[in-house]
């Protein structure tokens, strides 16, 4: 089952993600300049041997901003993956096991899924003020329904397994059953799903920052660097270009990791995952 292809994809994915994560973690040492320091004399500088990726409209070093921006973007996406994973996992578990509440919970999840996450984020930013926390809340709310659906599917499969049915028949306690048999069976699809959520959250955070409801300036995120560059797309395309490449590398890596995990853990999981 562990095809060569899967392992190679996994390796490529891991390399890409590790590259970006390590660069972000080491931003303090790697970044050649202060990412929020304006340098009025050096605005919209073409990439050269001092400013490797050029400078933006405030004369800030784009490379340094990408390194620090990746830190913020990664942190947000990681928290979103964990929070939506816990919330969605719990709702999915309840929904899949206690069939009585299933219909109601899933209707609420459908409603949330139909509600555009971007609008929720704009509204939250207006209420609470834009911050990393606001972005995390908006995206966690937006992605909880997906995880809940995947988890519910996995629980439904698990509870129909012979050994689980047998254990229930002999009167095993619910909590023990869930803990011993159902949760372990759901772990693999959960991990894979949250890897994808991680990837989607990176993209979504970029959209929110682009629209102007991300973490407030001057601290960079990958999306806000693109937003800063968009008014100067014609004269200085490098400002928006390189953070987009960083996002693409990261998301591609995460998607490859997700695919690799999925193929390695259980090929049948495709039926549950969409």
């Amino acid at each position: 089952m562990r095809s060569l292809l899967a392992r190679r994809n996994f390796a490529i994915g891991l390399t890409l993600v590790a590259l970006v994560v390590l660069a972000a973690l080491a931003a303090d040492w790697l970044a050649p300049f202060d990412p929020v320091k304006n340098n009025y004399r050096n605005r919209l500088g073409v990439p050269d041997d001092v400013f490797l990726l050029g400078t933006d409209r405030y004369g800030r070093d784009v490379l340094s901003r990408i390194l620090f921006g990746a830190q913020v973007s990664l942190r947000i996406a990681l928290i979103v993956a964990v929070v939506s994973g816990l919330a969605g996992g719990f709702i999915g578990l309840v929904s899949g096991w206690w069939r009585g509440v299933d219909v109601w919970l899933m209707r609420v999840m459908d409603g949330l899924m139909a509600f555009p996450g971007l609008l929720l984020a704009i509204a939250l930013a207006a209420t609470l003020g834009p911050s990393e926390g606001t972005v995390v809340i908006a995206l966690s709310v937006a992605y909880t329904p997906r995880t809940a659906r995947v988890m519910r599917g996995a629980v439904l499969v698990a509870r129909s397994q012979d050994y689980v049915e047998a254990a229930r028949a002999v009167g095993a306690r619910t909590m023990r059953l869930l803990y011993r048999h159902v949760l372990p069976a759901c772990a693999a699809p959960w991990v894979v799903q949250q890897t994808y959520v991680f990837a989607i959250a990176i993209l979504a955070e970029a959209v929110l920052s682009f629209v102007g409801v991300g973490p407030p300036p001057p601290r960079p995120t990958l999306g806000s660097i693109i937003a800063d560059g968009r008014d100067n797309m014609v004269e200085a395309p490098w400002i928006a270009l390189s953070p987009g490449v960083a996002i693409a590398m990261l998301v591609l890596g995460l998607n490859l990791l997700g695919d690799g995990l999925r193929d390695a853990l259980d090929p049948r999981m495709r039926r549950i995952m969409r």
Binding site: L203, A206, V207, I226, A240, G244, I247, V251
Partner: peptide, 8 residues
């Protein structure tokens, strides 16, 4: 799948 569409 991995490219931000607004950036594209």
């Amino acid at each position: 799948l991995s490219l931000p569409d607004f950036w594209l």
